[in-house]
Amino acid sequence: MASEVREMKSIWFLVGLVLLVMGGLVLLAGVVELFSPSERQTVLADTHPGIWWGAVMLAAGSLFYFKNRK
């Protein structure tokens, strides 16, 4: 959409930004949980899903963000 309107940022850039911010927060929460586990224990908590899923989001976000920066 954005490619034809010079000033407008591409939607894919914004998707990248959202995934970077949210993925970063999820990853950070996972790291905090690793060193200071909360009282609420979840099933499969030992696999630390916040860390690897946050990393997946960061990777996907980076791809969208840097590929559509201009």
């Binding site: 927060l25 950070l28 949980e33 979840t42 499969l44 899903p49």
Partner: peptide
């Protein structure tokens, strides 16, 4: 609620 720890719960709700 069963699987998501802090941070991911926020993502699921979002």
């Amino acid at each position: 609620a069963r699987y998501y720890p802090t941070g991911l719960i926020g993502l699921g709700v979002t």
